[in-house]
Computed example of a mutant assay.
Amino acid sequence: MLPIIEITELALALAGAPGHFATNRLAIAQGDVVAVVSDPPIDCRHMLRVLATLDRPDRGTYRFNGDMVSLTDYRRSLAVKRRIGYVAADAAMISNRTLWENFLLTRFYYENDLTIDIDKTTEALCRDAGLFPHLHSRPSELSDSELLRAITIREMGKEPAVMLIDRPENFLEMVDADGIFNHLKNMIQSGMPVVFSSHNSKMNDLANRRLTLAGGEIRKWPL
């Protein structure tokens, strides 16, 4: 089975040390739940941004579902970006659109249909997060915690092939009663790959792989 994301001859310049961190091959496959570990933590986000095609590595060939992706051409990589859920402090919503529109913009574009509505899963997550009454509010009208949860729901609602999350404890409540956390666990149980960086023990307990950035190497191994 082909990995979802594969980067060969990868090299990154990171904040934690001079020189490059490198590996011959980094692959994220179905069923992988990968905890990224680095000091300083900002390097973890840089790795997630590279996996999300938001940053270019210093060297490397990027493939998504076996197809090579040109990281120098933003428009041609949009079809890949929409298949990747990315939740981090630098993720944002379009400020002059309502929450409802932000949830649906990608589908409007790709399905060429302005009559569609949010799906039942997104609606249920919004209700659980207390966001349903705010669907026609703009992002600036939400509290900070509401906005973070809205970003998480939007990325989950993309039906991504892989989820990338930096500090999930900042975006959702890491308790069994939290609907978004339960949905994330359901995604993991379905086999969707998840790559994350977290200081939360409940999140780290879900990992079955570890990706470390240390000593000039990028290493991934099973737990």
Rank of each mutant, 00 (worst) to 15 (best):
D39I: 11
P40H: 10
P41V: 09
P41F: 02
P41A: 11
I42L: 14
C44H: 04
H46K: 15
H46T: 15
L48P: 01
R49W: 01
R49D: 08
V50F: 02
L51A: 05
L51H: 06
A52N: 13
T53P: 07
L54W: 06
L54F: 13
R56V: 09
R56M: 14
R56I: 10
R56L: 13
P57K: 01
D58G: 12
D58Q: 15
R59P: 03
G60A: 12
G60D: 05
T61E: 14
Y62Q: 08
R63N: 02
N65L: 15
N65S: 11
G66C: 09
G66A: 06
G66R: 09
D67L: 11
M68D: 15
V69P: 04
V69D: 03
L71T: 08
T72Q: 14
D73K: 04
D73N: 14
Y74G: 04
Y74F: 10
Y74L: 13
R75Y: 13
S77L: 15
S77V: 08
L78M: 14
V80R: 06
R82T: 07
R83N: 13
R83W: 03
R83E: 14
I84S: 06
G85D: 09
Y86C: 10
Y86G: 06
Y86H: 15
A89D: 11
D90K: 02
D90I: 04
A91T: 13
A91H: 12
R97W: 05
T98W: 10
W100N: 12
E101K: 14
E101P: 08
N102R: 00
F103E: 05
L104H: 08
L105S: 09
T106F: 10
T106N: 13
R107S: 06
F108Q: 00
Y109Q: 10
Y110R: 02
Y110L: 05
N112A: 13
L114I: 10
L114V: 08
L114D: 11
T115E: 12
T115H: 15
I116W: 05
D119C: 09
D119W: 12
D119E: 08
D119L: 07
K120Q: 13
K120G: 10
K120Y: 14
T122S: 00
A124L: 10
L125Q: 05
L125A: 09
D128L: 06
D128V: 11
A129L: 03
A129C: 07
G130Q: 03
G130R: 00
L131W: 01
F132V: 07
F132E: 09
H136V: 03
H136Y: 13
S137M: 08
S140K: 08
S140L: 11
S140R: 14
E141C: 06
E141F: 04
E141R: 08
E141Y: 09
L142F: 00
D144Q: 15
D144R: 15
S145G: 09
S145K: 12
E146I: 07
L147S: 08
L147P: 02
L148T: 03
R149L: 07
R149K: 15
A150E: 07
A150M: 07
A150D: 04
I151K: 03
I151A: 01
I151V: 06
I153R: 04
R154C: 02
R154L: 04
R154E: 01
E155S: 02
G157A: 14
K158E: 03
E159Y: 04
P160Y: 00
